[in-house]
Structures are given as structure tokens and as C-alpha cells.
Simulated scan of single mutants.
Amino acid sequence: MTVSFPLIQLEHICAAYDRKPVLEDINLTVCEQDFIGIIGPNGGGKTTLVKLILGLLHPLSGSIRFYQNGKETSELSMGYLPQYTSIDKKFPISVYDVILSGLNKQKSLFRSFTKAQHEKVRAMLSRVGLEGLEQRPIGQLSGGQLQRALLGRALVSNPQILILDEPNTYIDKRFETHLYTLLEEINREHAIILVSHDINTVLQHAQNIACVNYTLDYLPIKEVTGKWIEEHFDR
């Protein structure tokens, strides 16, 4: 039997914006090869939870711990696909350089990217279906193409955990099918956290579900019922 170690452990987390409480007493453990779907109403705290995990926001109280091979560590490698609306499409950068930027933490400060790193980018361009668009500025991309470029950036470093915030936005149905096939492949080796307003998508693809609405309620997908969704999502 394969042992699945924890990667991230949140214990009794409370968070606020401008002194307004957003999350209260949040407990969540993310293990290796987990696929957790996070749902909840707008303003319920989903994005705040993601920012806490990424270290972009610090909790008022509680603890966030990271682990590697069962031992506590100071950080994990994370790939992050932000919400589409947070991207500045006027920024002068090509598709190739967007994906290449996902390797910045692996590059020596005063050295160029290696041949092997450039090969990773070319392989990722193919994987997300953007061959031939390498030099196109992101301002000239469709919404779906930009999402694919950002997904490539999140994946190219081979992160221990992949966090996706509303990845379906602007992606056409054909690539959406490819996206979730790709996520199934990734999940064989890496943990995934998927934030989505689309409950059906989460139910189809995630292993476990967390409903965030000021507090957090967590269940394995196989135990989720219509009554549970109604009670926790619509309250």
C-alpha cells in the first residue's frame, strides 16, 4: 500500500482584510497526489485561502506548515494559474517568455537559461497546444490562448503542487477536455488544488471537495450529496 505524506497542513487559520474577518478556524491537509476541488460562493474566502497557501497573505492566527517526504520544510515548489482577470494583457511579453518565466526560480541569478530549460519550454508549448505562437505578444492572444500560456508557466517547473484558480475561464470546450486529461496525468505525481465556481467540474475530476464560506467543510467526493452542497454552498 502506497503511503501518502502530507504536503501542506493548515491548522486553525483565521484571516481578515481591513480588519473584516474572511476565514475562521480553517483546518485543511493537502497530501501527495491529492486532487482537491475548492468551491464556495463569491466572497466566501476561496481566493484568500489560495493566497494563504501561496504565502501572498499571512494569517491573523493559526499555522501553515509544509512537508517533503514526511519531514517539515520551509517551502514547497508550487505552480500557480491565477484568475484570468488578474493578468495585464498590455504587458509586452511573448508566449515563449511567459512560459520561460516559470523557470525563474531554477535559474542562477547572473546566468542565462540553459539549453535543457529552453527544451522544457518547447515541450510545454506543445503540451498546452501553443506551437507556432511562441513569439506572439500576450496582448494578441485570445482568452483561451492566454490561459494555456499561463498554465504552461505554472507547469514548466514541474512543481510539487499545482494551484489553479478558475482555470475554465475563456477556455473552449475542446481544450477544456484536454486540460482535464492533462491534469489527470499530472495528478499521478503531483497534488492539485482546483478552485472553481463550477461544482459539476469539481465533482467530475476532484478526489475531495472543500466548501469555503467563511469556514471550511471538507468531504471525499464519493460522500458528497446534493443535500450537502445545498447546505454548505447556499447557506
Rank of each mutant, 00 (worst) to 15 (best):
S196I: 02
Y80N: 03
K115G: 08
P6A: 02
E166I: 02
I163H: 02
L28H: 06
T29F: 00
R111K: 15
L219Y: 12
V195P: 01
I93E: 10
Y17W: 14
N208I: 06
I161D: 05
K71M: 14
K105N: 10
L183M: 13
V212K: 07
L183Y: 00
R65L: 12
S77C: 12
V195T: 01
L60M: 11
R65D: 06
L133W: 06
K227N: 11
L57T: 03
I209E: 04
Q207K: 15
L54E: 04
F110T: 00
H190V: 07
N187R: 10
T29L: 10
R188G: 06
L100A: 14
Q117R: 00
C31H: 15
A116D: 15
G44R: 07
C31W: 09
E11G: 02
L60V: 12
S61K: 12
E32G: 02
N27I: 08
K51N: 15
I87R: 01
L194T: 03
L162K: 01
E231L: 08
C14Y: 14
L103V: 06
I93Y: 12
T114V: 11
D18H: 13
A16N: 10
G152V: 03
K46M: 05
Q204T: 13
L100K: 09
D18I: 04
H205I: 05
V30R: 04
I186A: 04
E32P: 04
A149F: 05
V202P: 00
D97F: 14
E11T: 13
C31Y: 15
L194W: 05
N200W: 12
Y214M: 01
I99D: 08
